[in-house]
């Protein structure tokens, strides 16, 4: 299975050093948890892995041609689009056309009712938005999943649906899960503790 390789990676924000000559091999086919205190660099590690930010020194090597998807607090969906329009838009960006049946199926998998897809996303509750973000991730069928506290704001049903999907998808994906939640850590096959 493919892997994301951190080779001698260093990164600082101002005087705050997050990584210093870090070398990591994040293998696919399993759920990799990233845990650590606030400010330890969990979200930063995910951004580096997704090439959303670049390190000050060293390299992050991603397998050629793999696509990235994310559920993170700072990544928002379009409030002026309905749930279905958001799904269709992001799927289209990855060359996928979603039928109404597929949208309904995605909704079922993340626990969004069919009528929610006709409502503007700005009228969604926080938990519904989180479910919609996850539905987008499933719709685009990304190879690398970057999950930053993905079940925050979710009820028990939402959390269970998340965990089921993550476990089912794990064999074919590279999944990084930044969290401090004991239940989320519980579904991980491997845990990286920060600081390294």
């Amino acid at each position: 299975m493919t892997a994301i390789e951190f080779r001698d990676v260093s990164l600082s924000f101002g005087r705050r050093e997050i990584f210093r000559h870090a070398t990591l091999n994040l293998r696919g086919g399993r759920v990799i948890g990233v845990v650590g205190a606030n400010g330890a660099g969990k979200s930063t590690l995910l951004k580096l892995a997704g090439k959303i930010i670049a390190p000050d020194a060293g390299t992050v090597a991603l397998p050629e041609g793999l696509t990235i998807g994310a559920v993170t607090p700072e990544m928002k969906l379009y409030g002026a689009l309905t749930g279905a329009e958001n799904l269709a838009f992001f799927a289209r960006l990855r060359g996928k056309v979603l039928s109404p049946e597929k949208i309904f199926e995605l909704g079922r998998r993340v626990g969004l009712e069919a009528q929610a897809f006709d409502v503007l996303a700005e009228n969604f509750s926080t938990g519904m938005r989180q479910r919609l973000k996850f539905a987008v991730l499933l719709a685009v069928d990304a190879d690398i999943w970057l999950l930053d506290e993905p079940t925050a704001n979710l009820d028990d049903d939402g959390r269970e649906k998340f965990f089921t999907e993550i476990r089912d998808a794990a064999p074919d994906k590279i999944i990084l899960l930044a969290t401090n939640d004991a239940t989320e850590v519980g579904i991980c096959d491997e845990v990286i503790r920060l600081p390294l």
Partner: peptide, 16 residues
């Protein structure tokens, strides 16, 4: 401001 730019940049090619 709406927080959608990082999502757009993640899922779409920069030139697109």
């Amino acid at each position: 401001q709406a927080g959608t730019l990082p999502t757009l940049k993640l899922y779409a090619d920069a030139q697109a």
